[in-house]
Amino acid sequence: MRDSIKKAISETVQDLIDSGFTTSFTEKELNSLGVTIPDVHLTTCQIKEIRETLNVSQPVFAKLLNVSPSSIRQWEQGKRQPTGATRVLLELLKQSPHILDYRLNA
């Protein structure tokens, strides 16, 4: 594949991922194109802001995320960082605070 075509494809796929579009590329294919999936970085203040935006207490927030209240406390105090899927879920909540509203409706 010519370098100019590979670069154009790489930039297009990277733009799709950065914009939140779902792609069906494998990790190997993305790596071969030089496409990266950005890491999720959240500060303690951002985690607290997400919870406060939802207007819930730490125990309720913990229940929504299916983690312990102790984890929420430690994240907000900077003693620990969320990991894995929870980190991604927090990023989604930051962008769309109402995505878990269905869990609050009985």
Rank of each mutant, 00 (worst) to 15 (best):
R2S: 11
R2D: 14
D3V: 08
K6C: 02
K6Q: 12
K7R: 14
A8R: 13
S10R: 08
S10G: 11
T12Q: 14
V13I: 15
D15H: 05
I17E: 01
D18V: 00
F21W: 12
F21A: 13
T22P: 01
T22A: 09
T22F: 04
T23Q: 07
T23A: 04
T23E: 09
F25L: 09
F25G: 00
T26I: 06
T26F: 02
E27T: 10
E29Y: 00
L30P: 04
S32R: 10
L33D: 14
G34V: 07
V35T: 04
V35A: 02
I37W: 00
D39M: 03
D39W: 00
V40C: 04
V40L: 02
V40Y: 01
H41M: 08
L42Q: 07
L42T: 04
T43H: 06
T44M: 11
T44H: 06
I47F: 06
K48A: 11
R51L: 10
R51T: 10
E52Y: 01
E52S: 04
N55I: 06
N55K: 14
V56Y: 07
P59L: 05
P59K: 05
P59G: 03
V60M: 12
V60Y: 05
F61W: 12
K63R: 13
L64N: 09
L65M: 14
S68P: 08
P69L: 06
S70M: 12
S70C: 06
R73H: 11
W75S: 07
G78Q: 10
G78T: 11
R80T: 15
R80S: 15
P82Q: 09
T83Q: 14
G84P: 04
A85F: 03
T86I: 15
T86R: 08
T86L: 02
T86K: 13
V88I: 15
L89N: 08
L90K: 06
E91K: 13
L92V: 06
L93F: 03
K94C: 02
Q95K: 14
L100C: 10
D101W: 06
D101P: 07
Y102W: 15
Y102Q: 13
L104E: 14
A106T: 11
